[in-house]
Design a protein around this nucleic acid. Structure first.
Length: 276
DNA sequence: TGTTATGTTGCCAT
DNA sequence: TATGGCAACATAAC
């Protein structure tokens, strides 16, 4: 579930618990692959004793900046969760890693589906990550002109293109569907076919839906929670996501549809979001 | 009870 | 080089 608003919500809820804390140790659960190809000993040797000097988000990545300019990168993928709990709290279900902090608490990473990763990166790795991501959609650099130029370059369907993180960073299945509904654009439109007016509508819709969701601390569809275990409040505000087949369009009252686009479940209003 | 779907990304084949 | 499909995995719902 975690897309930009959810990852940013985790970052904000985590920040007061980890900032200026020193890492005093690491404990691995029963899935060593959470560290990628590194061993627990390798990672522990590199980060034990380091101070957490900052916590940033880039796209859907959380970046813990350490005081030697290296970075602990965490990606939650579909079902990853983070929390800060006292050291002697019992292991969580699906807990794969505990990062021990110098105040007696642990930063715990749990992930039901084992897709999420916790990697220790050097500055060059972080720069490479940054370079392959598109602009942050809520930043000033993400303009309608930039979006228009990016869409014009791509031959695919609008929905698939918007899910590509190298074009715009941070959108996932939920917010692409919501943004397309708000801008009244059909998900299977060719990305190259949009008029400049349509691109402007889409640009505004992307920013509006992300900001609205952030205001509600993200969407909890099934498993998402912030670092304090609290669910996001945006689910009730979703106009189309998860409503195709049963729900009705808020604009025209007709039934919403669900189709598959690029292998992803896609929710939209066939009447308000037309191909033309 | 089996089948299908699930929010993401990277790899593989085309 | 770019793009579409699928695997990675566990669970819930039908």
């Amino acid at each position: 579930m975690p897309e930009l608003p959810e990852v940013e919500t985790v970052r904000r809820s985590l920040l007061p618990h980890v900032l200026e804390r020193r890492i005093s140790g690491l404990r691995l659960g029963d899935f060593p692959g959470v560290l990628g190809s590194d061993s627990i000993d390798q990672v522990a040797a590199r980060i034990t004793g380091r101070r957490i000097a900052g916590l940033d988000r880039r796209a859907k990545y959380l970046l813990f900046g350490l005081d030697d300019d290296s970075t602990v990168m965490i990606h939650l993928r579909m079902t990853g969760q983070l929390g800060v709990v006292p050291r002697d709290n019992p292991r969580l279900r699906f807990e794969h890693l505990a990062i021990e902090l110098d105040d007696g608490n642990d930063l715990r990473f749990a992930d039901q589906r084992k897709f999420g990763r916790v990697l220790h990166l050097l500055p060059a790795d972080v720069e490479a990550l940054d370079r392959r991501m598109g602009p942050e959609p809520l930043s000033a650099t993400f303009s309608a002109q930039l979006l228009a130029a990016a869409l014009a370059r791509r031959p695919g369907k609008l929905k698939s293109v918007l899910l590509d993180q190298s074009l715009v960073a941070g959108l996932g299945n939920i917010y692409v569907d919501e943004a397309l509904y708000r801008s009244r654009l059909h998900p299977e439109r060719s990305a190259r076919s949009l008029t400049s007016d349509e691109v402007r509508r889409l640009h505004r819709a992307i920013r509006a839906v992300l900001r609205d969701s952030l205001d509600h601390r993200g969407t909890t569809f099934s498993s998402f929670q912030d670092a304090n275990g609290e669910a996001g409040g945006y689910g009730a505000a979703l106009a189309v996501y998860g409503r195709g087949g049963s729900g009705a369009c808020q604009r025209c009252g007709r039934p919403l549809a669900k189709i598959i686009v690029g292998g992803r479940g896609t929710h939209f209003c066939p009447r308000c979001q037309r191909h033309g």
